[in-house]
Structures are given as C-alpha cells and as structure tokens.
Design a protein around this nucleic acid. Structure first.
Lengths: 341, 341
DNA sequence: GAAGTTATTCAAAGCGCTTTGGAATTGATT
DNA sequence: AATCAATTCCAAAGCGCTTTGAATAACTTC
C-alpha cells in the first residue's frame, strides 16, 4: 500500500491525501476524516525513506557505540541509557540508528553518517578529555549532544552530565565526617572524562581537610567486578589499609564487597563503602534500604534528557549550545558507618 | 556532494558514475579508477535514503527491544548481544535500527516497520512460549531470526538458541555426581522460553536420578541481584536447606553469593553453585580461574550468529528456516565441591 | 451581479539514487 | 568495405513521498 494506490482508492490526488494525513490546514475536515479512516483500514504508513528523501529530514538519531579495541568491553550503562533515549524517540516518531564501532573507526563512521545523511543528529557517548569527535561534528555541522563532558575542550557544545566532581567530593567529605582518614578510590579508566572528574573531587576533599591522599589507595581500570576485587585485595594488604572505599560503579563495588567478605571484615562496621549508582534497571541497589550508601543518578533519565535535548536542538534549528548538569542524590545505605577506633 | 555534482565534475553521466562506484562490469577500468578517486577526494557517499528508495532495500535491520511494562527492566545481556550483531552489520554495510518499546506496543511496531519499509529484516528478542510475534512476522512476510525459541509454536522459523535444557540437565547431573541431593534452582521468569527450558532440564535430571524436586527450592523471578539474594536467604532458612544452587545468571548469582556469605557459609565447601554464564564483557566470571562453575555461552557470539543468519536469509531470498543450537561449555570454577557430609 | 475572498483540490516538479533500453564507439570478422 | 559483436557510455524513467504554484468552487461584499 502506498500513496498512489491510496489516493486512487479515495478518488483524490496524492497531494490532498498527503496533506490530509500530515494535518495541513488546507484540507476539508470531512475529507481528512475520510482519508485518515482509509489509511487505517488499508494499513497505510508513509514509506520512511521516500518521506525523508522528500523532506530532507531523516527522522533518525545516530548513536555510535565505541567498542574499545583493547578491552572489547561494552559499557554496561549503555542498555539503560538507550532505553531512556529510545522512549523519547518513539514518542517523537524518530528512529534510533546504532553503529557499533571499534573506537579506531569512529571518525570514519561520523563522516559517513554525515555524508550519507542517514541521521538528523547524534549522541556522543563516553567523551574523553579533548575529544576529537567534538570538533569533528562541529565541522560536519551535524547537531549533537554529548553524554558527559570533554575537559580541555575550549569550544562550547551541548551536553548532559552528572556533577561527578561534586558527587565524589561530597562522598569523601561524608566519610571524613564519619572519622575516616584513609579513603580508597576505585575508579574507572581515567582517560575517560567522568573518571577524571571523580578523582578531582576525591582529591579536592582531601586538600580541603588537609589530608594527603595516598597513591597506593587510588586504583583505576576498566570497571569490572574483577578489578574491584583485586584492587581491594591489594589495598587491604597494605600496612595501614583504608577504612573506607569510594567506588565508581555498582559492578566494581560487588568485587570490592567480595574482597572485603573474603577478608572476614564487615561492611558498614569495619569498612565503609560509598558507590556511585547509575540506577541500572537490572542492578538495583537493594530494595527498600539501599545496600550501599551511594551517589545516585539515573542513567535511564540521562538518556531521556540527552534525547530530548537533541530533538529540541534539531527542532529549534538554532546553534546555541545547551547544558544540563545533574546533581546526584547522596542516599544513605547500610555500607557506611563511623571509622573503627 | 551528490551524484549529480560528482558526475558533472567528472564530465560523465550519473549512470556511469553510479555503475563505476557499484562495481558494475560495463564500465571501463580506467574510468572506474578515476571515478572512485574523485569520490574519495570529494568525500562522496551515496545518500542512504535515495539509494534504498531506488533499490527497494533499506540495508537496515530492526531490533525491537521490549521493555516490560511491569518491571521496566532492560535485559542486561542486551548490550553484548547488540555489540555482536552490530559488528556483523557494519562489516556488511547494514545499519541497525533500534526500537525500544513497551511490550504492549510490540505488535504495532512490527506492523509499522513493515509498512514503512524501514528495515529488511528483524531480530526477535526474548521469545515466550507461543509467541504471537512469530505468526505476525510470518504474515507480514518480513525476514526474521529469533534469538531463542518459542515453545509450542508449530510452524517452523529461523532461530539461534542455546541448548538450555541440556545445559541445566548437565549442571544438575554434575551436582548429583558430587553427592548433592537437595538442589536449588534460581531461575528467570518462567514465561520466558529460556527459563522454562532450563527448568525442564533441571527437572529431567531429578527424574533420571529418582530424586523428587522440592518446590520450595525452585524460585523464579526477574533476574536481579536482589532476587538472587532474597530467594537464597529464604531457601537457606528451610529446615533442610539445599547444598547446591543452580543459578540462571551471573547477576543473580552475585546475590546468591551475598546471602551465602551473610550466612557465614563457604562457597565450594558448604554450598556449591553452578551458574549460567552469558560471558558478558563487563561481568567476566573471574580471570584465570572462574569464580563460578558455569555453563557458558557467549551472548556476544549469539548476536553475531543471529545477525549473520538474518543477512544470509535476506541475501538468499529463500524461505527455508535455519537453525543454530549452541551447546554450552561446562567450565569448572571454584564454586563447586562434594556435598558436605 | 461583478469583483474579491476564501476554501478546497490538483498536476507536476523534485528529493538523490538505480536501472532500463538504447546509442555511439571501437575492434574483429568476413 | 560492410557487417557484427563487444565495449562503453548516456538519457530518461521510476522509487514514494512532499511541496510549489494554479485552478476550481463556494462565499462574501458592495
């Protein structure tokens, strides 16, 4: 079923049928009703490709998912982010185009998306300081929103980010207030912008308290359970082990917890833990009472915000960048307590 | 840059340029070289939409990700599956179109994808017994591959699945061989086909050994850490608690482990655990030595296989269904041992 | 009742590509 | 030199839609 056939059936021109369906004013209400009814009975939907060829808008948003060539790890927050963004897209009749690409090829893909005109805009995932994708997209003149920020980038661009620095500073301060003095940081890879900011916050709190951070208590790697486990084991084996851990993700925290249990220590009493909780749907932080005290910020929500911001930018057609900085909730769970004497 | 401009620059007709780029034989090798070079220097790529409008092929595959309206949980295996499939798509110049849809709306979305002709085929995720999507897609005449199988579906269709029944039967038998007699099953929602088959395998092993399965030791719910934890706690509180657990996912197993540690029992000595390991990139089962004894099957690989199968089907244009049944590896980890006396 | 509006519909061009059905050129064959 | 077959290229149609510019019909207004 296509426009031609449908208009033939209705005894109308393609023009009128098209206009009726797209809610143009210059068509009789009665005929519009008739057309819309016919569209439904004949299960007619405008062919996407023809439509976007004619309009010049593809009604699709691109997400380029980088696969690290070194680790082949897919970011676990990705599923929830996409789910959030996808909600907004379907609500606005947009499609989501996903490209899974080795990080090496990313530039090529963006160029292709632009040249092939397959999307109206893109979401940039996992920004790094001084990220080359940002100037690239600017030069390609394709609307984009960054999930996160790229430090050291001097031009302005649109982003949605969590206040990672402040979150981790607050977390550290909270532990200092509980009397802890040796804090450990189990962080993600610090060439990722979010991880770098978290570390900055962690360090800032130390400076403010006049506590010298111990390099042996700061670890950074791919965010797996395994890394959380081994890093914690190593730190607990220190001459004066930490009494509190700040952990950049739930998954790593699970490894941290395992190492602590293995050492026959009790979380919340012997060792305190604060995690950053992305509120992943499949990894909730306990039920009524949170397992971990956490700085919490929903990645699902971030997906929705990014998507909405991008659609707004495309609609508005104006170039002034927009920003959303999300503060985290510091929610108290069962994993923190006063420093042991 | 478009075909028209490019051919003008080259002093050739659009026809010739198009044919040169698409490797048609009826064009002089020398001119082909010249055309291809020009395409590169001018950064020309055929507009996707125009191309697929002309060819009738969209060069895109649809993935419809159902969000359970009741739980709002995104399947955590999803990211790795997509990554695998995406690899195959980029290698074959296909795009991946993602629709995130409340499970209620799924039918509508499939109909739309068909009517709008936006994809050449779709992958069906998370089949349930007697899944309505299968006859729907068949009637819409759109090529598809199911990741998993739908029991009680009498027509034939293409699928890639893990031998879930056999895996769980083997896991149970292995535990019986170690002298365990009270086995617990922590399973996913049993209206999902994979979970149902796993239970069948679990039960089949009991029947073969003449052991009566205890309903109190079989739990089934959304696969979260929290459910693994509470279900295990409840079972350990039984008058005669189980000595071994078979757990349908790594994430649930983490909760199982937490409950067991909390009960001051040692995994591998007091309690054995076998998990099903989807080999998620961000949740590896330990490093050298697996933490958990596991039936292992890579979801990333399954994604690749599904994608390749679908592309093959589309290419071949023939309707005969294809099947791939993957056997799991039963890999020994540190979580299993002989039943305590 | 003529002129001017307004409401409603349509034919045709155009979006950027592929592909059909020639046409022109060249080389080989008789 | 005439014929035939390749080879190489092209003009134009068509994919299914939107949109421009006009035409027609129906109402007002004076």
């Amino acid at each position: 079923m296509n426009l031609k056939k449908l208009s033939k059936i209705l005894g109308l021109s393609q023009t009128t049928v098209s206009r009726a369906l797209n809610d143009y004013p210059e068509v009789n209400e009665a005929t519009r009703e008739r057309v819309k009814a016919a569209a439904i009975t004949h299960n007619y939907r405008a062919n996407t490709r023809a439509k976007s060829l004619a309009t010049g808008r593809s009604m699709a948003i691109g997400h380029v998912i980088p696969i690290s060539t070194r680790h082949e790890i897919v970011n676990p927050i990705f599923a929830d982010f996409i789910a959030g963004a996808g909600e907004i897209y379907s609500r606005n009749n947009h499609d989501m185009l996903l490209s899974v690409v080795p990080d090496i090829d990313e530039e090529r893909i963006y160029r292709e998306l632009a040249a092939k005109a397959s999307v109206d805009g893109v979401i940039v995932h996992g920004p790094r300081p001084n990220d080359p994708r940002i100037p690239l997209l600017q030069s390609l003149n394709i609307p984009f929103v960054v999930h996160g920020r790229a430090s050291d980038e001097d031009t302005d661009y649109s982003w949605v980010d969590v206040n990672n620095r402040r979150s981790f500073e607050r977390a550290a301060n909270f532990l200092f207030d509980l009397g802890h003095t040796r804090l450990a940081l189990i962080n993600g890879l610090e060439f990722m912008d979010f991880a770098r900011r978290r570390k900055e916050g962690f360090l800032a709190a130390h400076v403010a308290r006049g506590v010298a951070p111990d390099p042996a208590l700061m670890a950074s790697d791919e965010m797996t359970e395994h890394f959380g486990f081994t890093a914690t084991q190593a730190m607990l084996a220190e001459p004066t082990p930490p009494t509190a851990f700040i952990v950049s993700s739930m998954i790593m925290a699970i490894g941290v917890r395992r190492a602590i249990s293995d050492a026959r220590l009790k979380i919340g009493r012997d060792i305190s833990i604060i995690i950053h909780d992305d509120a992943l749907s499949y990894l909730p932080n306990g039920a009524e009472i949170p397992i971990f005290t956490a700085t919490k910020s929903s990645v699902h929500e971030a997906g929705k915000l990014c998507a909405q911001m991008l659609l707004d930018i495309i609609d508005a057609g104006d170039k002034t960048p927009r920003h959303t900085l999300l503060e985290t909730d510091l929610t108290l769970g069962e994993s923190t307590g006063p420093a042991p004497k």
